[in-house]
Amino acid sequence: MSVTPDRPGRPVLAQPSAVEPGLDAGWIARTVAAALDEDLGAAPGRDVTTQATIPASSTGTAALVARAPGTLAGLVVVAETLHQVAARLGLPDPEATFHAQDGDAVERGQVLASLTGPVQVLLVAERTLLNLASRASGVATATAAWARELAGTGAQVLDTRKTTPGLRALEKYAVRAGGGTNKRMGLHDVAMIKDNHVVAAGSVGAAVRAVRATFPDVAIQVEADTTAQALEALDAGADFLLLDNMPTPVLAETVAAVRARQGRDGIPAHVELEATGNLTLDRAREVAAAGVDYLSVGALTHSAPILDLALDLVP
């Protein structure tokens, strides 16, 4: 696969992305393979329309185009999708020239990439690469709106685990492309003690102690609905507090109470605080002004509409 950028002075990229960390190449390959199996049937599969109507020898160019303004993510899947389709059909890899990269803001009608090669490969790959890139770009676009709203406040927007099964890595990558921050990747890397854990363990303190004893290497976040619960969690040894569904005055009061305890009695010098629950874009700056470090927004991934992208053959 030839990946040719056209920006003066820009280096040749294995993936059209400035997002760090990038998507794992192995994850991309596995995800594209599963998506193609879903569309074509078990490998090598078939596209009964394209393969019946277009000769294998036919070549052409297709433009990947934005049909709406937004923020890009997911272009990194394009080359792998074309490569896998070409391999299934026994045809040469198309060449891809990218005119934009993941993380870029784009306008309606902007050409994002030019793809040249066997027309069968271009059309068979079309829906898979559009599904993945449109979904990721929708998440990036939604995230960018929050990042712009929070600019200058000192607070950052976080994602959650409310992701599409099988696409978590892509959607969290898209959050980064949109200017947001990833919270935890799953249940394995950060302990989050919520109300059901407290009920099962008997108390916040018991839950924190159990995690510390079993998994001493992980950070512990505790959910709190009130100022009293937040202070109890702080005393129990939480590293990070999730302040859930608090009205803004209560949130500000809780933040002040926690900040007043920082650096005393074994409490860290800075306790990370996250607001969550019923957050809307029009409240973002108000919530940030309460002094939290983060606003976590499940809607970034569970409710973002796609960014409309298209693949058009050039006459």
Rank of each mutant, 00 (worst) to 15 (best):
S57Y: 01
T227H: 06
A113M: 14
R209L: 01
T4E: 15
G180Q: 05
S114W: 11
A257V: 08
L40V: 09
R30W: 13
L89E: 15
V271W: 08
K194P: 02
A177C: 04
A256M: 01
E223D: 14
V198H: 08
A68T: 10
I267T: 15
E149C: 10
L23R: 06
Q156F: 02
E232G: 10
K162P: 07
D225H: 12
N245K: 08
M1V: 12
A155N: 04
L251Y: 07
P44M: 11
P94F: 08
A151M: 08
P8Q: 05
G26Y: 13
D37N: 11
A87P: 06
L241C: 01
A140K: 01
V204G: 02
G180E: 09
L91T: 06
G109E: 11
A140D: 02
V106M: 03
A174Q: 02
D39T: 15
L309V: 08
T226G: 13
M185Q: 14
L251S: 08
A68L: 08
V124D: 10
A133D: 05
L75V: 06
T181A: 06
A310P: 00
P8D: 09
D239T: 02
L170W: 00
A304F: 11
G138R: 01
D235Q: 14
G70W: 02
A213T: 07
L115F: 01
A228V: 09
A136P: 00
A66M: 03
R209I: 00
A206D: 14
L40F: 09
S137K: 01
L300W: 09
A210V: 00
L91P: 08
E95Y: 02
L122H: 06
A284R: 12
W146I: 07
E107C: 05
T116I: 00
S137T: 02
A73D: 01
G74W: 03
A25M: 07
R161P: 01
G237R: 05
S2F: 09
V208N: 01
V77M: 11
Y294L: 04
P8I: 07
N196P: 05
A56W: 13
G90N: 11
V139G: 03
A145L: 12
S303H: 07
A210W: 03
L75H: 06
R184E: 13
P21L: 12
A284Y: 13
D282I: 10
T4H: 13
R30M: 01
A136I: 02
A136V: 04
V121I: 07
G237V: 13
P305T: 07
V204F: 09
E286G: 04
A201V: 02
P44T: 13
R108C: 13
T254D: 00
D239K: 03
G70A: 07
V3W: 07
V139W: 13
D312T: 14
V250G: 05
D93N: 14
R10H: 14
Q229P: 09
A177Y: 10
A105M: 03
A147N: 04
A96V: 15
L82K: 06
E80N: 07
A269Q: 13
T49I: 09
D265Y: 12
L234P: 14
G154V: 07
E274L: 03
Q156N: 00
V292A: 04
